[in-house]
């Protein structure tokens, strides 16, 4: 990791954990909206929304990351973060969005094998802040091949 490079992250909360994603991947942040559920979809798919005429899948990040049972009551702070990954647009639900952080890249350490119940495959690293830890999510891994496999396996059943 080169020194002095600054990362800009959008940070958000899910339960007690604090997460960060690269700001360049984030397209927009929306308030909770009506979600249309999809029968037969993989478990972590919450449904689809209408984003200005486009239909976008919504992922329940809790289920996807495998902690909690998902489906926390929607609160005022609940947000949908819409990200774009190689042309793929999708949204995920978070409890609240905190802030945009600028942190030097060298404060980020590789993830220990298990962090906060999240499979470390999905973690790019852990950022040390003053007195807390920030989990940096690797969105591409989180929403790519394994999900496809899930979906494919599902169809086989």
């Amino acid at each position: 990791m080169t020194e002095g490079k600054i990362l800009q992250l959008v940070t958000f909360k899910l339960g007690n954990e604090e997460f960060g994603v690269d700001i360049l991947k984030v397209q927009e942040i929306n308030r909770m909206m009506d979600i249309t559920r999809i029968p037969n979809a993989p478990e972590f798919i919450e449904g689809v929304i209408n984003l200005r005429g486009k239909i976008i899948p919504i992922v329940d990040l809790r289920k996807k990351l495998g902690f909690g049972h998902g489906n926390k009551e929607t609160e005022k702070t609940t947000r949908i973060i819409v990200v774009e990954l190689d042309g793929l647009v999708l949204g995920f639900i978070v409890d609240s969005v905190s802030e945009v952080l600028r942190i030097p890249e060298n404060t980020i350490e590789p993830a220990p094998s298990i962090v906060g119940g999240v499979d470390s495959d999905y973690i790019e690293g852990v950022g040390k802040l003053d007195n807390r830890l920030l989990i940096l999510l690797e969105l591409k891994k989180l929403f790519s091949c394994s999900d496809r496999k899930d979906i494919e396996n599902f169809e086989m059943n």
């Binding site: 029968p39 037969n40 798919i45 976008i56 929403f143 494919e152």
Partner: peptide, 15 residues
């Protein structure tokens, strides 16, 4: 279409 991410969902042709 439901989009690439969701792929083909059994029973749903689109939205």
């Amino acid at each position: 279409p439901l989009g690439e991410f969701l792929g083909n969902i059994n029973g749903v042709g689109g939205a």
